[in-house]
Design a protein around this nucleic acid. Sequence first.
DNA 1: AGCACGCCGACT
DNA 2: GTCGGCGTGCTC
Length: 720
Amino acid sequence: MSGENRPPAGADADGPADGGPPEQLALIRETVRKAKAPRAKPRTWRGAALAKELPVARIVVNKGVLHLDRYFDYAVPEELDETAQPGVRVRVRFGAGSGQVRDGRREGGRLIDGFLVERLATSDYTGPLAALADVVSPEPVLSPELLALARAVADRYAGSLADVLQLAVPPRSARAESRPSPAPLPPPAAPEPGSWTRYERGPAFLESLARGGAPRAVWNALPGPSWAEELARAVAATLASGRGALVVVPDGRAVARMDAALTAVLGEGRHAVLTAEAGPEKRYGQWLAVRRGAVRAVIGTRAAMFAPVRDLGLVAIWDDGDGSHSEPHAPQPHARDVLLLRAAHDRCGFLLGSLSCTVEAAQLVESGWAAPLVAGREQVRAAAPRVRTVGDEQLARDEAARAARLPSLAWEAVRDGLRTGPVLVQVPRRGYVPRLACERCRTPARCRHCAGPLEAPEQQELRCGWCGRGAPDWHCVECGSVRLRAQVVGARRTAEELGRVFPSVPVRTSGRDHVLDTVPGRPALVVSTPGAEPVAEGGYAAALLLDGWAMLNRPDLRAGEEALRRWIDAASLVRGQGEGGTVVVVAEPTLRPVQALVRWDPVGHAQRELAERAELGFPPVSRMAAVAGPVDAVLGFLASAPLPPDAEILGPVPLPVVRPGGPTRPGDPPAGESWERALVRVPPGSGAALAAALKQAQASRSTRGPVPPIRVRVDPPDIG
DNA sequence: AGCACGCCGACT
DNA sequence: GTCGGCGTGCTC
């Protein structure tokens, strides 16, 4: 299906996937030590009895601090010899105070958790080794594969191994560990291709998996509910080859659908579900069943991306554009990139599926690393609804629309739809912040120097949100207009008024705090925020996508892609145009994402976005990192970081101050403090050097005295 | 981050 | 002499 297994562009093409170079300081110190004293047999305080074979244990300690991101050697006491095997959890004394001996025990170190990485005959460390305090449990939870993956993720995101391990290995539950896992089942028969026949290379993809191959594909799924079953068949094909499979989906609803689909295709007992919802003990039990090889297929939300599946044959991610694939805990890895690293490392199959298409997905195809898995146009036309647009000019001319606050085309679509079934109305969430755009043609206003988004904070001077330079003489590059606008629309009110326009029809709502899973096929108005749309029995007769303008003008590089994804996701719940399914989107028909929706061409949209990002030096073609903190600290940090010569620093610019007691998001500065943020941008190929530099600067920073806090994030998701 | 060591000034 | 200030450096 695709060529040899070189690493994917944009993922780890420019990063050492296997460990990375040792830091220079450590290297020098190591050399000096070796010169002074050759490898020593371990001596412990007071010479307690040690294991006879391989008396040294290499430990990774559970401390996320970056200057402790290396291994520490400990002596293995005789009584722990048997259980102290690679991969087990251990407790060790760790901390300052070397050389304090009292009663034959070393004092001063605190007991902390860690993992045993390997057993060795000798240590490079010249001092006397402390002894392992305890082996927590004989369960080898950290396999060499998982360790290598965690190392690669830490390097890619300028984070520490310990932080990644915290995400990758769930907390222990002794009860779950003591329960035996079920006996593994023999591989099932290869499945029929089913609805994969709708895709040109679908059956071939399944056959390759079933034969033990490692095909890699970016799959643009046809609208409708079949994707879960199709993913389940890909899993089944992989199991048939005697290998394991892993599927990561964005949320609990998608997990439930995959769970049902896998049960239908494979029967009971062949797959594990890894979600946080299950509670720690149950989750650890499932995780253990996977690690022990009792279960070979895994589905779950993002934490499952590290699932220790044995003999991995396929990693798959569904809807990679969904924000919940981004891990909020340090170092904030994205499930797509973790799975890319796994695919490259384990040389297994890779499947990225979505109804829509991200720029990153397009890049995987563009670079040749993955093959496109798409349906022909006639399949798309049959499955997708008819899409019509209502632009602002049309809206302005439409007297009836102004009076009723509803364009007549939209009114007709709702009225006609309600004759045969439910009608979906999508309204943007409140809190969507539109960004500045040309008043006439709606082209986003960008900085002349770095192409960042322009902002006018609190009616102040117009300036760039990235580099902070002012833009007093801005004019639109497309049409020459000098006027800007930012519009916040009364979306909810419009939806409420819809209910008044159709008083005899029940109105149901689905949103953040109250999400409906399904609605019956009877006529009803279903008002929903993006992502919370219920599935309608038999499909919606029509959908109304309101206030596209607000969706498209958020101050985010992904605004267009995200709006299109939200629209496609909603429109995919509508019947195909053969059955009369109609979608009306209220947005300017000349805009690229709107046109892509009308043509139902998310892949083409992503390809054009990718070309543009390459031209403007935007991620994912370039790689960026964000450095946030008090302005002096940010500047000092950047000055001390050994950035690659091709790195470009944008800003810093002030971040919005969080009001005490106000809403906070992870990553926000502490309430009341004024922080600034700089962006560091490097061209393709320098991503690994950037991450290494940021890591080193963080490590040397924390060794010297109390320092003001700094937040570093590789691949920040919210750059304007 | 902790935590201990060490090299300087005021105290019993 | 020796108690303890916190500046500096290490953690197997």
